[in-house]
């Protein structure tokens, strides 16, 4: 697979900034869980889809229950060279964005910004569907892609089940505003479905659907999977098709979504 051994420079930069954020977070590291495309990439790797899982964004779920009061987060990130470019929640360094997101049910009142006590309301924004990520994660030792950068952090990386739940919520939330839909999210769902062993994934989802924090979003996600992926014409399946058009056979992508979603739904009872 081209690029498997020599990462693209964008990847290298994205990883470096992610590590910068981790370095800055210090004692707060235990409160963040890596989600989004970078987390998917850590699980799935390049996979064998012809579409690279390329991303420069770092998405971090923040569990307010794990946050310390000191040091104050905004000041800490600014000191490390990050800038709050989109309020609330998007911190940027050298054109690489790190998005801090708090699961809606843990984010307190307010519309967009998460209420984080001493850390204010602009450090992170609320996002639905991330509840599963603060429950289902594994520790992964993550280093730089640049051999000269020797930093290593034990990063909480959301599990495949939690990542699936989060992606399904993102797709459903944006389904009525097509210009906000990002087709690559459909393909990310397919990546997860292709990678995961069905019975194991279903087992985790069943457990998440019983967990006090993750229960509601996980149960909703089952409906979204059914609605958007378990049919080849579904919104999600077609997003995956559009994201890979010209590089993958459209029918193969759509039917793969359908078959794998159905298998997961059958196992997830």
């Amino acid at each position: 697979m081209p690029g498997a051994n020599v990462p693209e420079p964008e990847y290298v930069a994205a990883r470096r900034v992610l590590l910068d954020a981790y370095e800055a977070l210090g004692v707060h590291r235990k409160a963040v869980v890596l989600v989004g495309a970078q987390a998917i990439y850590l699980h799935v790797g390049e996979g064998d889809l012809a579409v690279s899982p390329y991303t420069t964004d770092g998405d971090l779920a923040l569990d307010p229950r794990e946050l310390e009061d000191n040091p104050e987060l905004n000041a800490t990130l600014e000191a490390a060279g990050f800038e709050l470019t989109i309020r609330p929640g998007t911190w940027t360094m050298t054109d690489v964005h790190i998005d801090f997101m708090v699961p809606t049910s843990l984010g307190g009142g307010g519309r967009r910004g998460a209420r984080l006590g001493v850390h204010g309301t602009e450090f992170a924004r609320k996002a639905t569907g991330l509840e599963a990520a603060v429950v289902d994660y594994t520790l992964v030792r993550v280093g730089a892609l640049d051999p000269a950068d020797t930093r290593m952090f034990d990063v909480r990386v959301a599990g495949v089940a939690a990542l699936l739940v989060a992606k399904l919520h993102k797709i459903d939330e944006r389904k009525d505003t097509p210009d906000r839909l990002q087709d690559k999210d459909g393909l990310d769902v397919l990546r997860l479905l292709r990678f995961a062993e069905t019975a194991h994934l279903a087992g985790t989802l069943v457990a998440l659907a019983e967990h006090a924090i993750a229960r509601d979003v996980t149960r909703q996600a089952r409906g979204f999977l059914q609605e958007h992926f378990s049919h080849r014409e579904g919104i999600g399946a077609q997003m995956a098709v559009r994201a890979s058009i010209g590089l993958e056979d459209s029918a193969a992508i759509a039917i793969s979504c359908e078959a794998l979603a159905r298998r997961l739904l059958t196992a997830w009872t």
């Binding site: 996979g47 064998d48 292709r194 990678f195 039917i255 793969s256 078959a259």
Partner: peptide, 9 residues
């Protein structure tokens, strides 16, 4: 047939 997980699977 289709291997929905891709040929590497």
């Amino acid at each position: 047939y289709l291997e929905p997980r891709g040929l590497s699977a």
